[in-house]
């Protein structure tokens, strides 16, 4: 009990997922649950043990979601939702990708979105040949006040310049446009 009382509990229990693209298997079979945690200490133990995002092979993802929410559009908590999306050119992978992904994780774990933290579902980093992506997923794309509040805090926390614009897309729009980027519903 004394040891437990010294650990720093998080507001939510989180689940880290790993996706490795293997075209011979169904999409869901390529998704693996890595670990669950609900303390700051357990997060760092896990983070220190796994590869940095920039060291993953092309086609791999990490996803961190609240327990009970699957990292896919089809989940009930995601299907009306959307994502704030960062697209990172390959030449910035080794400078910026790991920093931006860690900042994203710290936003989630620190519960930094105030009264809208309940809207946040999780985040995903996709490692791809041309451009990597980091996305913060929220549960209700029509909740403009919540989505905009989260986007403004997120952009500030990432340290992006005021000239940089990031967009939010509804998952329903992304799903309908699998070969090109969906239109931005909101920008900050």
């Amino acid at each position: 009990p004394e040891v437990l009382s010294k650990l720093h509990l998080l507001q939510y229990r989180w689940v880290l997922w790993f996706f490795k693209n293997d075209r011979s298997r169904a999409w869901q079979d390529n998704l693996q649950l890595v670990a669950k945690f609900n303390t700051v200490e357990d997060f760092w133990a896990l983070y220190s043990h796994i590869k940095l995002a920039s060291k993953l092979s092309s086609g791999c993802d990490y996803a961190l979601f609240k327990e009970g929410i699957q990292p896919m559009w089809e989940d009930n908590r995601n299907k009306q939702g959307g994502r704030w999306l960062l697209s990172i050119a390959k030449q910035h992978r080794h400078i910026e990708l790991d920093r931006l992904w860690l900042e994203t994780l710290l936003c989630l774990l620190g519960d930094c979105f105030e009264e809208y933290s309940g809207e946040v579902c999780g985040a995903v980093v996709n490692i791809r040949t041309k451009r990597d992506k980091i996305a913060l997923w929220t549960s209700e794309a029509e909740n403009k006040a919540g989505v905009m509040f989260i986007g403004q805090i997120y952009k500030e926390r990432l340290g992006l310049s005021t000239k940089t614009v990031i967009g939010y897309q509804a998952h329903t729009d992304t799903a309908a446009k699998s070969n090109s980027l969906a239109k931005n519903k909101f920008v900050v």
Partner: peptide, 20 residues
Amino acid sequence: GKKQYDREFLLDIQFMPACI
């Protein structure tokens, strides 16, 4: 109460010795 932690606090804990 709510467990909100700012980034500096979270980062500090990364390097704290384990409480064992």
